[in-house]
Nucleic acid binder design. Structure first.
Length: 362
DNA sequence: AACACGGGGCT
DNA sequence: AGCCCAGTGTT
């Protein structure tokens, strides 16, 4: 039993709404790098990068990524450390691993051609209902819905829908609505137009209704509800976790690093040796842990900085130290490398903050 | 349905 | 201190 949304527009008005939106889009759209290509692989890459990530953040990553992996096959053949490095700082790192899994499947199963069938494409790793609709409509002009946060916000206003957009089933409601009103002449312009409108005009706070090309068709505006829509419930707050970490420098100027586990938070990325801080925050316990864990003879140890980092669901506080000493040998997952070697591996932002503090003080 | 999964920009 | 961002996978 799905909720039925009463459309506030008749067929005639829907057509005018489509034309107003699509022509506004083609006139006002931003010149973005992924709008200069028709290569399904590149459009796909851009959509994965844009998940939960702002356009301005994505642009430089996209440029570097396409420069490094110009074709689907270049990316399919790359090493994991290499693709993680290309994604370093962008967040949600499973996106890039899933993308490679999917691209390899396309290379083998579809002879390197991105499937044009929405169901086949959506079956690929990391491709959900939004990304499937976006790539199918933009690259292949298929009239498929691509419902993201923008679409739910814009449509909740245009059709004055007060369902909670945080609920999973609400997305399906909007998909059904998009299927009814999408422009079959230009599905790409329609989907991108809604998203562009959400980014430039129909913004989360204080939408610019006076500049809106579809204001005349907006039920929420006519009811004066544009500011209270969309309805979205609040999510729970994040937990906190404290750590102690050391930048260990060997006598010949190398650095001790560690590869994180291949599952979970920041999977397979690199960091400096780190343990969870005990309840007493015992520095001596940390020293003896370093000694045993790394076969390390500590010659000097000093506090460096405290790094705070907020993830979506957890907050970290890292007490960072600089340690100098001699090491006979380290065992996996630890490794000793030069600064130049470090630059080839992906480090999460909290550890980049540590490194930056070190470079500024030493 | 609820939660894990990054990082940054804006109010 | 929240909210939001061109969401998806797992449980």
């Amino acid at each position: 039993m799905t909720t039925t949304i009463e459309k506030s527009l008749n067929d005639f008005q829907i057509e005018k709404f489509q034309k107003a939106l699509v022509s506004w889009f083609h006139q006002e759209k931003r010149d973005l790098p992924w709008r200069r290509t028709e290569d399904p692989f590149r459009i796909w890459v851009s959509e994965i990068m844009l998940q939960q990530t702002r356009v301005d953040t994505v642009i430089p990553y996209y440029e570097r990524f396409i420069d490094k992996f110009p074709t689907l096959h270049d990316f399919a053949n790359a090493k994991e450390d290499e693709i993680l490095k290309a994604w370093e700082g962008l967040g949600y790192y499973s996106r890039v691993r899933n993308l490679q899994t999917a691209v390899r499947e396309v290379a083998e199963k579809y002879n390197g051609n991105v499937p044009e069938d929405p169901k086949q494409f959506q079956s690929l790793k990391g491709v959900g209902p939004y990304t499937a609709g976006a790539v199918m409509s933009i690259a292949f002009r298929k009239p498929e819905p691509a419902v993201d946060g923008n679409v739910m916000r814009v449509f909740s206003r245009v059709f004055s829908i007060e369902e909670d957009i945080a609920k999973p089933k609400t997305r399906k409601t909007f998909e059904g609505l998009v299927r009814e009103v999408i422009d079959h002449e230009d599905p790409s312009g329609f989907n991108q137009g809604i998203m562009e409108l959400g980014a430039l005009i129909c913004t989360p706070q204080s939408p610019s209704c006076l500049l809106c090309p579809v204001r005349d068709y907006c039920k929420g505006f006519h009811e004066g509800k544009e500011k209270i829509l969309p309805i979205k419930n609040t999510k729970k707050s994040s937990t906190k976790k404290k750590w102690m970490s050391a930048l260990v420098l060997t006598n010949d100027g190398q650095i001790v690093v560690q590869k994180r586990p291949e599952t979970g938070l920041l999977a397979s990325m690199w960091q400096f040796p780190m343990i969870e801080k005990g309840k007493n925050g015992d520095l001596d316990a940390f020293r003896s842990w370093l000694k045993e864990e790394l076969n390390l003879e500590i010659e000097h140890m000093e506090p460096l900085t405290t790094v705070k980092h907020v993830f979506s669901h957890v907050e970290w506080e890292i007490d960072a130290y600089v340690v100098k000493g001699s090491i006979s040998s380290v065992e996996l997952p630890y490794q000793i490398m030069t600064e130049k070697q470090m630059s080839e591996y992906a480090f999460p932002v909290p550890f980049q903050k540590m490194w930056k503090a070190f470079k500024e003080t030493h």
